[in-house]
C-alpha cells in the first residue's frame, strides 16, 4: 500500500464522519474484504464437500501436532507484530526493529514447519492428486502459505525502512497496515487449522 501519505488535502463536507478514517485504512480493509471472499469461498466449499465426501479417513493423516505448533508460531508472530506497532507509537526504534525481526523470523519458522509437513505427506504418498481432501488441503494451505510469504516480504521491507530510520509517521502507518494484513493471515489460519487438522 504505497501512496497513502501523498494525499494531504482532504477537504471534506461538514458533518461527515467518514473523514475520521484514514484513506489508507479503508484501502487495506477493502483489500482484506476481497481476501475474506476468496478464503471464505474456499472454506465454505470445503465445509459443504465435507458433508458429502468422507474426509475423516484422509484427515487422519495430517500432522496435527505440527499444525498446533504452527498455530502457536503464528499467534505469537501476531503478538510481535502488534508490539512492533506499539513500539513504533512510542518511537522506540530498537524495539520496533526487534519486534519486526521477530515477526519475520516466526514467519520463516511457520513456512519451515509447513514445508516439512508437505515433504512428509508427499513421501507418504499424499499429493494434491490423491483425492478431494488433499486437493483442498494443499490448495488452501498453499494459498495461505503464499500469503505468509507476502507478509514476510512486506515486513522485511518495513524492517529495512526501520533500519534506515525513516520518519516515524511513515513507519507507524505502514506498520499498522502491514499488521492488519498479518493478523488477517493469522485469522485465516485460526480457521484453517481446526478445519483441516482437527475435524
Amino acid at each position: 500500500m504505497s501512496a497513502t501519505a501523498d494525499v494531504t488535502r482532504t477537504i471534506l463536507p461538514e458533518n461527515d464522519s467518514i473523514h475520521e478514517i484514514a484513506p489508507g485504512k479503508i484501502a487495506i480493509w477493502w483489500f482484506l474484504a476481497s481476501e475474506i471472499m476468496v478464503f471464505g469461498a474456499l472454506m465454505g466449499v470445503f465445509v459443504l464437500f465435507s458433508f458429502s465426501h468422507d474426509f475423516a479417513a484422509d484427515g487422519a493423516h495430517v500432522k496435527w501436532r505440527l499444525g498446533a505448533f504452527n498455530t502457536l508460531v503464528l499467534v505469537t508472530s501476531s503478538l510481535t507484530m502488534i508490539m512492533a506497532l506499539a513500539s513504533a507509537r512510542k518511537h522506540n526504534l530498537t524495539q520496533t526493529r526487534m519486534f519486526l525481526l521477530a515477526t519475520v523470523l516466526l514467519g520463516f519458522v511457520f513456512l519451515g514447519v509447513k514445508g516439512f509437513e508437505y515433504t512428509t505427506e508427499i513421501r507418504e504418498g499424499f499429493t494434491p492428486a490423491t483425492g478431494m481432501f488433499w486437493s483442498f488441503y494443499f490448495g488452501m494451505t498453499g494459498l495461505h502459505g503464499l500469503h505468509v510469504i507476502g507478509g514476510i516480504v512486506v515486513n522485511l521491507v518495513l524492517l529495512v525502512a526501520a533500519l534506515s530510520r525513516k520518519p516515524w509517521d511513515f513507519l507507524e502507518r505502514r506498520i499498522e497496515f502491514a499488521g492488519l494484513y498479518w493478523h488477517f493471515v493469522d485469522v485465516v489460519w485460526i480457521f484453517l487449522f481446526p478445519l483441516l487438522y482437527l475435524t
Binding site: I26, A33, I82
Partner: peptide
C-alpha cells in the same frame, strides 16, 4: 484478534460494513 490486534473495536462503522457484508 480482530477486535484487539486489528483494532476493530475502535473503528468507524464503515469498516464494520466492509468486513460484515462479504
Amino acid at each position: 484478534v480482530l477486535r484487539n490486534y486489528m483494532h476493530l473495536k475502535h473503528e468507524h462503522l464503515l469498516i464494520y460494513i466492509i468486513v460484515a457484508v462479504p
